[in-house]
C-alpha cells in the first residue's frame, strides 16, 4: 500500500511563545509553562496526506522527535485520521539542531521502510529554519520540492507540484519516492471530530529510543549537532517613545501631523 510519512513537531503554542524570554542578567532562557501544540504548518502536511488517503487508500504514519509529552500531538494526528504514530524519544536526542534532527528523523523513516512520500511543514514555528525537510531528503537520498502549494498526482510514479517562490511559483515534476515541504496554501486542515477522538483512544503510539534506532549516540542530539549556541543576550532599546494623548479624534489628528512632518502625507 502507498505509504506516507508526515513529520510533525510539537512546538510551544505560538500564541504564548512570546512569554519565553531571555533573562538580561543571567543571559539564560527564563522557563515558564507554555503549552505544546502541533506545529501549524504540519497540520497542512497531515491534511495533504489524509486527502491522498481518501483517494488512494494510503497508509498515513505520523513521525515526531521530541520529549514523551510530544505523544499528545501524535494522538491528535491520529484522532484526525492518521493510521500510525511513532515518537522518537530518548534523553540523547535533546538539544538537536536541524542537522541532527533531520538525521534522527531520517533514521526513523528508514526503520519504517518502503515509504513512498515524506511530507514536512515548510517551517516549524519555533525553529523555523526550514532545513529539516531538505536535509532529510539528502540523508534519505530522495528528490525534494520545498514550499508546495498544490499537488496533482499524475500517477503512482510522479507528482506535479506547484511550489511557491518570491513573486510567483515554480511548476515541478517529481518522481516518487520523494519528500515535499508544504505551505499553508496547500489546503484547509480539517477540524477534530468527536468520533475521531474516540477512535484514537484505542490507537497506540510506538516509541523508539536511540537503541531501537540502532545509531550511535554521537550522531544524535547535541552531540550530533554541528552548530552550537554560544551566547544569549538581551537587546537594548535605543528609542524613547512619545505617547500621543487625548481623545481618539485628537490622537488621529496628532498622528496626521506627525505623518505630514515625516513627509508621508
Amino acid at each position: 500500500m502507498f505509504k506516507i510519512v508526515v513529520c510533525v513537531k510539537a512546538v510551544p503554542d505560538p500564541k504564548e511563545a512570546c512569554n519565553l524570554k531571555i533573562d538580561p542578567v543571567t543571559k539564560t532562557l527564563l522557563r515558564c509553562d507554555v503549552s505544546m501544540v502541533l506545529n501549524p504548518l504540519d497540520k497542512h502536511a497531515l491534511e495533504a496526506a489524509l486527502q491522498i488517503k481518501a483517494e488512494t487508500e494510503a497508509h498515513v504514519c505520523v513521525l515526531s522527535m521530541g520529549p514523551p509529552e510530544a505523544g499528545s500531538i501524535l494522538k491528535e494526528c491520529m484522532a484526525l485520521g492518521a493510521d500510525e504514530g511513532i515518537l522518537l524519544s530518548d534523553p540523547c536526542f535533546g538539544g538537536a539542531d536541524a542537522y541532527a534532527t533531520a538525521y534522527t528523523l531520517a533514521t526513523g523513516v528508514q526503520k519504517i521502510g518502503a515509504v513512498d512520500v515524506v511530507l514536512c511543514g515548510m517551517a516549524s514555528s519555533d525553529g523555523a529554519t526550514e532545513w529539516v525537510g531538505p536535509e532529510m531528503a539528502i540523508m534519505l537520498d530522495l528528490p525534494v520540492v520545498t514550499m508546495a502549494q498544490e499537488i496533482s498526482m499524475l500517477d503512482g510514479e510522479s507528482w506535479e507540484v506547484k511550489a511557491a517562490r518570491e513573486n510567483g511559483y515554480r511548476r515541478m515534476r517529481v518522481r516518487l519516492p520523494a519528500l515535499l515541504t508544504v505551505t499553508r496554501d496547500l489546503n484547509t486542515p480539517r477540524a477534530l471530530s468527536f468520533s475521531g477522538i474516540i477512535k484514537a483512544r484505542k490507537k497506540v503510539i510506538t516509541q523508539w529510543s536511540l537503541k531501537d534506532l540502532g545509531v550511535p549516540a554521537e550522531k544524535v542530539g547535541i552531540k550530533g549537532s554541528p552548530t552550537i549556541v554560544t551566547e544569549m543576550c538581551a537587546v537594548e532599546n535605543t528609542r524613547k517613545v512619545e505617547f500621543l494623548e487625548g481623545t481618539r479624534e485628537e490622537k488621529a489628528e496628532l498622528l496626521i501631523q506627525k505623518l505630514v512632518e515625516g513627509g508621508v502625507l
Partner: peptide
Amino acid sequence: YGGEITIVC
C-alpha cells in the same frame, strides 16, 4: 526570545 543568540559551527 526577545534578544539575540550567537551560533557557531
